[in-house]
């Protein structure tokens, strides 16, 4: 060992040459990088994907329609407001035509939108919220807490959703869309909660989380800082899936006529067309049945596109491969770092 050598080296050589702009990171740069990595690039990747773009446009359109209805900017549906059984495009005042009672079909669709959006939101928030909380707690606490929570989840999962909702709907005749949303996703959380739990278990085993625990970081901090951010992608995608489930189930229930017919809903419109006008047998009433179907179809299409697009943003592998083929410069730029780390 020659200490003199070492000394001269420490004093004499400046390894951190300042002209290495590409490699030298200041704190500000790091924040900028963080913003680039976490916010800007995902947003660009998301927007560069036509799925997300269309999904957002469609969902946005429904939100606007809901606002129009809520603010009373479009006339409410009334009986005998127009001639009966107008066909679509027959009278441009009632573009989609009218029902057997002379009600404007478009007005029916428009005014059912706000309640539907509320129902979707409350149902999806409830389902994902309960799933995240219980899944995280079970996965993180482990032991008895885990066993009890998972036993409950298993039980809840064993109950078929739709029949349960129907029985409860008959029993309690809920009319508030927020309550209905929750009712419909009453046992939806169980499956999601289970998969979130196993994700939490995986994240928990990661070295950095292990390190945080060893260093005595409080549990709530670990959950907030390490677990939740890692769950977000999965949760966001499932939020959209839950929302779609709420649409399908609620319209189905209204269509069956097991929910109270006080409110406006596309399902009720379908129910009336189907069971009172015999829309299946007569050409004249077909549009009455088909118009609400299209409303459901486009909203769920929007949600699915949104979910697919977001899946791309959050799933690095899909994201990498996607950008490898896409022409968008922003996309491929975001991928380069990914691609190289994956390959090398």
């Amino acid at each position: 060992m020659k200490p003199t050598e070492t000394d001269s080296q420490v004093g004499g050589v400046d390894w951190s040459s300042s002209n290495a702009a590409a490699t030298d990171l200041s704190r500000l740069d790091r924040y900028r990088d963080l913003y680039q990595e976490r916010v800007y690039k995902p947003a660009v990747v998301a927007w560069s994907d036509w799925r997300t773009r269309f999904g957002l446009l469609i969902v946005g359109f429904y939100v606007v329609v809901a606002l129009i209805a809520a603010l009373g900017l479009y006339p409410s549906p009334e009986t005998n407001q127009a001639p009966r059984y107008l066909l679509p495009l027959e009278n441009m005042d009632y573009v989609l035509g009218t029902t057997a009672t002379g009600t404007d079909l478009l007005a029916l669709l428009v005014h059912a939108t706000p309640e539907m959006m509320l129902m979707i939101t409350s149902g999806a928030i409830w389902a994902t919220g309960v799933a995240v909380v219980l899944g995280t707690v079970a996965g993180f606490k482990g032991g008895t807490t885990d066993r009890v929570l998972m036993a409950i989840a298993d039980f809840v999962m064993a109950i078929p959703g739709l029949p349960l909702i129907m029985i409860l709907a008959i029993a309690f005749t809920p009319e508030n869309p927020l309550v209905l949303g929750v009712l419909i996703t009453l046992n939806y959380w169980a499956g999601l909660g289970r998969s979130i739990r196993s994700q939490v278990l995986t994240i928990r085993e990661q070295n950095y989380v292990e390190a945080s625990r060893t260093m005595g970081t409080p549990t709530h901090r670990i959950i907030r800082k390490d677990i939740i951010p890692n769950l977000m992608p999965y949760v966001t995608v499932n939020f959209v899936t839950a929302a779609r489930y709420v649409i399908f189930a609620s319209v189905g229930l209204y269509f069956l006529g097991v929910l109270p017919i006080g409110a406006e809903n596309w399902g009720i419109t379908m129910y009336l067309a189907y069971s009172t006008a015999g829309a299946l047998y007569t050409i004249e009433a077909a549009h009455w049945l088909i118009a609400p179907m299209l409303a459901i179809l486009f909203l769920s299409l929007g949600l699915i596109l949104l979910g697919q697009g977001m899946d791309r943003v959050f799933n690095p592998r899909v994201r990498t491969r996607l950008a490898g083929e896409s022409e968008s410069t922003a996309g491929s730029e975001a991928e380069d770092s990914n691609a190289s780390t994956e390959i090398l």
Binding site: I247, V251, Y274, I296, L297, S300, L301, I304, Q308
Partner: peptide, 18 residues
Amino acid sequence: SILSASVPFYVLALLLVY
């Protein structure tokens, strides 16, 4: 696939039976 996923089964059922 995306299109088929956005159709509730009862909507297709109604169209088929119609």
